[in-house]
């Protein structure tokens, strides 16, 4: 087996060396296709970060008409924190609420002159775990909270939440459609480019079959070649996407998203980069396999 593996790798490398033009065409095709996908991935990744950022703001505020005793408050907090949906509970005193309000008023803080912190209610701010930051998650917690007679004044931005969820659903849906379309187009283009390279080598494939090569043995070096070309293509795509990110996206997109609370546009994380590399390998290998089916068969 190692002998065969060495042969496959050597043959694949030899094939690529012998047909530099076709090899470059295949690498170029993968690179262009993956660059488009990587470009959109950066956009989606950063918008996804934005939605996560927004999602963190999804919380329930329970306003307290009467400030309870510390022991009662601790008991409530412990009970709420025991809910599986709840990440943490923060008690905001009347004074803290007043201070926050003052900060928010900024230069107009003078308006509060003569008023005391008693004008604002104390509250419990209930932050949910990430997977429960949805309408149904909030609804479940709200129902449990309402069982406590003292926690009836609950605010959780119902309208905003619905709009937010629609936006996230739309985003995921468009990402899915666009991604699938681009991947399908890439497999199609890559397999056609590889088909051209195989067409140029059809005599070679026939000779291999005539001297006793099994279809798998004949195909494997070409599948390796496709995988190598896919990997090179993916690396080129990542490189060019990084340049696009550095010189175009970083400046233009950040201006757009800054108003929505995003301070910095980030490049694709390492896991995404590795996924791209593997996608390149996969595209190249599958593209080769699809084309080889037509060219390598035992004729009888």
């Amino acid at each position: 087996m190692p002998e065969k593996l060495v042969y496959f790798i050597r043959s694949a490398a030899g094939n690529m060396r012998q047909s530099p033009l076709l090899c470059t065409a295949a690498i170029g095709t993968v690179a262009v296709s993956l660059t488009i996908i990587a470009f959109f991935s950066i956009l989606f990744f950063n918008i996804e970060q934005l939605t996560i950022h927004w999602g963190r703001q999804v919380q329930i505020k329970a306003f307290l008409d009467v400030v309870p005793k510390t022991e009662v408050l601790q008991a409530w907090t412990r009970k709420i924190e025991a809910f599986p949906e709840v990440e943490k509970v923060v008690y905001v005193t009347q004074m803290q609420a007043f201070e926050r309000f003052r900060e928010r008023l900024g230069q107009n803080a003078d308006l509060l002159r003569g008023l005391t912190s008693q004008i604002l209610p104390a509250s419990l701010e209930i932050e949910l775990k990430e997977q429960f930051r949805s309408r149904s998650g909030i609804q479940a917690v709200v129902e449990k909270l309402r069982q406590n007679q003292n926690l009836q004044d609950l605010h959780y931005g119902q309208d905003w939440l619905e709009r937010f969820e629609s936006f996230v659903t739309l985003l995921k849906f468009s990402a899915g459609i666009l991604g699938s379309f681009l991947l399908f187009a890439t497999v199609f283009i890559v397999s056609n480019t590889i088909k051209l390279t195989l067409y140029a080598r059809r005599d070679e494939l026939e000779i291999m079959s005539l001297v006793g090569g099994t279809p798998l043995f004949i195909k494997t070096p070409y599948i390796f070649e496709g995988a190598f070309q896919g990997a090179f293509g993916a690396l080129v795509a990542l490189g060019s996407t990084y340049l696009i990110y550095q010189f175009l996206l970083k400046k233009s997109l950040v201006t757009l998203l800054f108003t929505m609370g995003v301070k910095d546009i980030v490049f694709l994380p390492l896991t995404y980069q590795l996924t791209f590399l593997l996608t390149g390998v996969f595209l190249g290998a599958v593209g080769s396999m699809v084309s080889l089916r037509k060219f390598v068969r035992i004729r009888y």
Binding site: G212, I298, Y300
Partner: peptide, 22 residues
């Protein structure tokens, strides 16, 4: 079976007029 043909061909040597070399 088609899958057995390559193994049969390994027991045969074939020479063509046009050589069929790579």
């Amino acid at each position: 079976r088609l899958s057995q043909i390559p193994y049969l061909r390994r027991k045969l040597g074939v020479v063509f007029q046009d050589f069929k070399l790579l």
